Computed example of a mutant assay.
Amino acid sequence: MAEQSLVFSFFLIFTGAAILATLALYTRQPLLVAYIVLGALLGPYGLSLVTDTALLADISHIGIIFLLFLLGLDMQPSHLLHMLKKATLVAIASSLIFMATGYGASLLFGFSQIEALIIGAALMFSSTIIGIKLLPTTVLHHRHTGELVVGLLLLQDVIAILVLLLLYSGNNEEQSGALAFLKTLAALPLMTAGAFLFVRYVLLRLLQSFDRFHEYIFLLALGWCLGMAELAQAIGLSAEMGAFVAGVTLATSPISQYIATSLKPLRDFFLILFFFSIGASFNLALVDAILVPSLVMTALVLALKPVVFRFLLIRISESKKLAWEIGFRLGQISEFSLLIAYLATSAALIGQEASHVIQATTILTFLFSSYLVIFNFPSPIAISDRLRKD
């Protein structure tokens, strides 16, 4: 029965997505909007046709892992290190500004100190999915833009992991929380070094020996990506970071572009599930209670993030045009914000209203930010033929 239920859920999701995507294309709307609206419509708070949203969210998480793996395959390690050094100050300064803004606004709406801190933390990050999915990857003159966006997102991921560790350790002893931080700080460079050695002495030799068997290359790439994701989680990092390291360590291989092309359809399959699960998990009954604070937070994010990123990027000698573009591309909050809301609610640190303010702000900034980007900057799903670039 469970298998039939999952198959029926997939039927509803992908058939519904195909129908709404068709309408979205005819009305020149971004496809992401169609997937989120479909989730709200079919999910447990809508028509209740798809009820196991926790399972779908777990499955869709694989899409984010594949997205980061493919991103890593496009990044040369030397370029990445240069960009991370350049973007560190921007990432830290912007995160502090966004947290302070969210904290102050939350206090004005009557949330407690701890709720205001967690809402502020949720506003610090930008979406890896939105930022990368709407970024052209094959156009040469966007290469520098892509490297800056990726560098900032990766640094934000590191900050997000530290925030999540704080939440994870909320129910543990103080010593275990301190040990978790130390382990995380040591884990990333050790995992990266080990991955480079494994790729050089094992993986590349296997690829060279059996490069005629495309099915084997596909399986080896999947195993490497998901294996590194699991390893990262086991040592206190995020699965996404493990997948990215897996991609970067393979980026210098001549087979990397073949792997990237092979995995793109699989990535898109899981990302549709991800956006559906966002819409489906939102409790529509709380809309009245959270509408005003969510709209205010959304307006603050959409107005403040482009301005802050523009100001900080100009300070590191980027052009005004590029600084504006990156600011708008990162002008939303993150899927990490949803995870922060879930963990904080589970640990009884915040109430349902604060949790749903974070969720609603995430969804709204996803939608409005997507509109701003696809109407004004080059992207694979741009409405204008002039701006549509893959």
Score class of each variant (00 low, 15 high):
residue 313 L to T: 07
residue 51 T to V: 15
residue 22 T to S: 06
residue 14 F to N: 00
residue 379 S to L: 07
residue 179 L to F: 10
residue 113 Q to G: 11
residue 172 N to P: 06
residue 16 G to N: 02
residue 194 G to F: 00
residue 276 F to M: 13
residue 342 Y to I: 12
residue 44 P to N: 08
residue 175 Q to M: 09
residue 268 D to C: 12
residue 117 L to D: 04
residue 217 I to L: 13
residue 300 L to F: 11
residue 124 M to Y: 07
residue 5 S to G: 10
residue 281 S to I: 13
residue 389 K to D: 00
residue 370 S to A: 15
residue 284 L to Q: 08
residue 355 S to R: 09
residue 289 A to N: 11
residue 2 A to H: 14
residue 358 I to A: 04
residue 173 E to K: 14
residue 294 S to L: 01
residue 336 F to Y: 11
residue 389 K to E: 04
residue 202 V to K: 09
residue 242 G to N: 03
residue 109 F to M: 15
residue 188 L to N: 01
residue 54 A to G: 15
residue 244 F to R: 05
residue 77 P to G: 06
residue 221 A to Q: 00
residue 231 L to D: 01
residue 128 T to D: 04
residue 9 S to T: 01
residue 191 M to V: 10
residue 390 D to Q: 03
residue 351 G to M: 01
residue 279 G to W: 09
residue 19 I to L: 14
residue 357 V to A: 02
residue 193 A to M: 12
residue 343 L to R: 14
residue 172 N to T: 15
residue 209 S to V: 02
residue 170 G to H: 10
residue 313 L to K: 03
residue 114 I to G: 07
residue 5 S to E: 14
residue 252 T to N: 06
residue 268 D to H: 08
residue 36 I to S: 02
residue 344 A to K: 10
residue 87 A to H: 03
residue 34 A to D: 05
residue 382 A to Y: 00
residue 201 Y to K: 15
residue 143 R to K: 08
residue 277 S to H: 03
residue 365 T to F: 10
residue 48 S to G: 13
residue 3 E to G: 05
residue 208 Q to V: 01
residue 68 L to W: 07
residue 37 V to I: 08
residue 45 Y to G: 12
residue 72 G to V: 11
residue 210 F to Y: 14
residue 52 D to A: 13
residue 221 A to E: 00
residue 319 S to E: 03
residue 82 H to R: 06
residue 92 I to P: 01
residue 192 T to P: 02
residue 23 L to T: 07
residue 61 H to D: 11
residue 120 G to T: 10
residue 197 L to Y: 05
residue 347 A to K: 14
residue 19 I to E: 06
residue 368 F to T: 12
residue 69 F to S: 03
residue 62 I to S: 10
residue 3 E to S: 12
residue 159 I to E: 11
residue 230 E to R: 04
residue 42 L to Q: 14
residue 163 V to Q: 13
residue 263 L to H: 05
residue 6 L to M: 07
residue 257 Q to S: 07
residue 135 L to K: 00
residue 107 L to S: 11
residue 55 L to W: 04
residue 228 M to A: 14
residue 308 V to T: 04
residue 81 L to N: 02
residue 14 F to R: 00
residue 339 L to W: 11
residue 62 I to P: 01
residue 3 E to F: 08
residue 8 F to V: 09
residue 85 K to M: 02
residue 50 V to H: 09
residue 101 T to Q: 00
residue 266 L to V: 05
residue 289 A to I: 04
residue 322 L to F: 06
residue 138 T to R: 15
residue 261 T to P: 01
residue 268 D to F: 09
residue 132 I to M: 13
residue 77 P to I: 11
residue 167 L to I: 15
residue 65 I to A: 09
residue 27 T to Q: 14
residue 86 K to M: 01
residue 104 G to Y: 15
residue 52 D to T: 15
residue 361 T to Q: 15
residue 257 Q to W: 02
residue 216 Y to P: 00
residue 189 P to K: 06
residue 274 F to P: 10
residue 190 L to H: 02
residue 50 V to N: 10
residue 3 E to D: 09
residue 293 P to S: 06
residue 87 A to Y: 03
residue 137 T to S: 11
residue 186 A to V: 14
residue 148 L to F: 03
residue 216 Y to L: 10
residue 350 I to V: 13
residue 8 F to M: 07
residue 82 H to Y: 02
residue 10 F to T: 02
residue 116 A to D: 12
